[in-house]
Design a protein around this nucleic acid. Structure first.
Length: 568
RNA sequence: GCACCCGUAGCUCAGUUGGAUAGAGCAUCAGCUUGCGGAGCUGAGGGUCGUAGGUUCAAGUCCUGCCGGGUGCACCA
């Protein structure tokens, strides 16, 4: 049990003893007072008052009078209808330090997920297309989910599912075959070429809808693996996969297994045949569907009238393949909110098939531009590389202006960390239920509630520790008395609860907010409390506190997938 | 038409699962260098929490209606 929980339990125990017999408060009843001056933990007396039909403020006063300082509790006072306690910086702080020291990197983690294998499917990008800023949210939310679930003890299998054989690919291959045959494409221009062809093909098809019959023909050939388009598909698919692998590696995604749409087609066809025999899949208007109207989910369209498979159909094959490969007890699909209807259909269909695993859609709202949604079809996107280079440019400029004496290599390393921290934090700090209206000016800002601010806080911490040199830091808190010191200890203690909560909700923004608050409190401490000029216990204990803040900051940022630098 | 998401300061967002005086960042304005990094700190202005009802001792938070924005609902993924 973590120290913060012990402190809460102590408080509850005291309340229980002071309250009338039979009243059993729970840890969930405890709150945090809105103002630190009011105390560290609060117990609201409303429920008790209701049972006794008395004024909650009176009850709070009575309870507070009966509870004395004991253990971690230094002070008890009634504030209106609340009983508030102030924790003892010395004993509480010491307990927090001790457990941080004992647990090391494990501090904040838990084992609720022990013995459970969990699959996280994310990074489901399309081949033959660019990576744009909308995808980044998926990649970062997915990776954070993977890290957080691992931190709560799950055996996590992160997988990516690449859509390398959808209609978009058929359009692309058709466009190349029809308008760019035998055209030589230099390796460095491959992705741009694919993008241009895709936009061009869409434009032509819009103007001449009759040509879509040709695309269908190409699609059929690709699905069946025959015809002269297959070679072209294979080659260009290779370009795309190389590109995606490069991007994923640049973003440090940890993906255990890559699944491809093209490899689940045969299995999907077999599954559908069986489902037809069982009467689950039926013919309707020339297409093949699963009727889910009784569940208010409409119909799940699997095979089009032209005989080609739809995305939802192939997801059935994928689910079975994943089950064979890893048999996870729970599967999390990290997918854009716009697909929630399709995913509900998928889950419902799998259930009809007798697939009993727990399935969860981790949905997030999409990233849009100020002028409206992005669309690869028309080329109206901000590509990942554009954002990255804008961030790198800005970070380089900032770093150079601060450190004229640094080598180019050093500047580059720091600029890289700053740029990527800004990118990741920017995508993670907002609640997944809210869409992000992308704004380049805000995105390249390094001040305030941003990744670089956290990196900066960490760099200042490292600088302090480096300057302290051989002076010892100590995991005690006998002399800590500044309000910010108390606040820092309390925040450090709460870290395990935050990690747990963030992992439970799979809402990285919660952790972002916490880390920012921690950094903010540290900055206040830093501006008001001297460290290196102190001596004796004051020096060593403050150094200990500084180091502990740095450790939690590093741990939390690591969970978000953000790399740190020692100086910047 | 139906379903889901959203509406909080000029802008972008938090808001402890119904509790105390609704908070941050950006922007604006005013300050902070002889002590450790100014990507920082301190302060100020800025709010009928879309709106009208309802439930409750207590509503930004729950329920209902309405308004506004977004997304989805059979051959895209």
């Amino acid at each position: 049990m973590y120290t913060i929980q012990k402190a809460k339990t102590e408080f509850l125990q005291a309340i229980k003893q002071a309250a009338p017999p039979g009243f059993i408060p729970t840890i969930e009843d405890l709150e945090t007072p809105p103002d630190q001056k009011m105390g560290d933990l609060a117990f609201p007396c409303f429920d008790l008052a209701k049972g006794l039909k008395r004024n909650p403020a009176e009850i709070a006063t009575e309870l507070a009078a009966k509870i004395g300082p004991k253990g971690f509790i230094a002070e008890v006072k009634a504030v209106g209808p609340y009983v508030n306690v102030l924790l003892d910086t010395k004993s509480f702080g010491e307990a927090v330090y001790t457990e941080m020291k004992e647990l090391g990197d494990e501090y904040g983690t838990s084992d609720v997920g022990a013995d459970k294998r969990l699959m996280v499917e994310f990074a489901n990008l399309n081949s033959h297309k660019d990576v744009h800023i909308g995808h980044l949210r998926n990649l970062f939310v997915g990776q954070a989910a993977v890290n957080l679930l691992k931190a709560t003890g799950y055996d996590v299998v992160p997988v990516a599912y690449i859509n390398d054989l959808g209609l978009h690919v058929a359009k692309s291959v058709w466009g190349m075959k029809t308008y760019h045959e035998h055209e030589e494409v230099k390796p460095e221009n491959r992705i741009a070429f694919l993008r241009d062809v895709y936009v061009e093909a869409n434009k032509i098809l819009e103007e001449q809808p009759a040509l879509s019959a040709q695309v269908t023909e190409v699609f059929r050939h690709l699905e069946d693996g025959r015809g002269d388009e297959v070679a072209l598909w294979k080659e260009t698919r290779g370009w795309s996969i190389d590109y995606l692998k490069e991007v994923y590696s640049e973003l440090d995604l940890t993906i255990d297994h890559w699944y491809f749409e093209s490899e689940v087609i045969a299995k999907t066809k077999k599954i559908i045949e069986e489902l037809i025999k069982k009467g689950i899949v039926k013919e309707s208007e020339g297409a093949w569907i699963v009727d889910l109207k009784d569940q208010d989910l409409g119909v799940n369209l699997l095979i089009k009238t032209d005989g080609t498979l739809l995305y939802n159909a192939k997801d059935l094959g994928l689910a079975m393949k994943k089950e064979e490969d890893y048999h996870p007890t729970r599967s999390i699909y990290v997918v854009d909110e716009r697909q929630s209807h399709a995913l509900r259909q998928l889950f419902a269909t799998l259930k009809l098939m007798g697939f009993e695993r727990e399935l969860q859609h981790l949905s997030y709202e999409f990233v849009t531009l100020e002028g409206g949604a992005m669309a690869a079809r028309t080329g109206n996107v901000i590509r990942y590389e554009d954002l990255r280079d804008a961030l790198l440019g800005e970070a380089r400029r900032e770093t150079e202006s601060r450190h004229q004496d640094w080598t180019k290599k050093k500047v580059e390393k720091v600029a890289h960390a700053v740029a990527f921290a800004a990118m990741r934090f920017g995508m993670l700090k907002q609640d997944t239920g809210k869409k992000i209206v992308f704004n380049l000016k805000d995105a390249v800002s390094f001040e305030g509630f941003t990744g670089p601010y956290l990196l900066y806080t960490y760099a200042r911490i490292r600088s302090l520790i480096k300057k302290a040199g051989r002076k010892k830091s100590k995991g005690t808190s006998t002399t800590l008395n500044h309000p910010t010191e108390h606040q820092l200890v309390l925040r450090l203690a709460k870290y395990p609860e935050i990690v747990f909560d963030t992992a439970q909700k799979l809402e990285p923004a919660v952790l972002c907010q916490y880390l920012f608050d921690l950094a903010k409190t540290f900055a206040e401490f830093y501006a008001n409390v001297p460290v290196l000029t102190q001596e004796g216990a004051k020096l060593s204990e403050r150094l200990g506190l500084v180091k502990a803040v740095g450790d939690v900051l590093a741990h939390g940022l690591d969970l978000l997938g953000i790399d740190l630098v020692e100086e910047m």
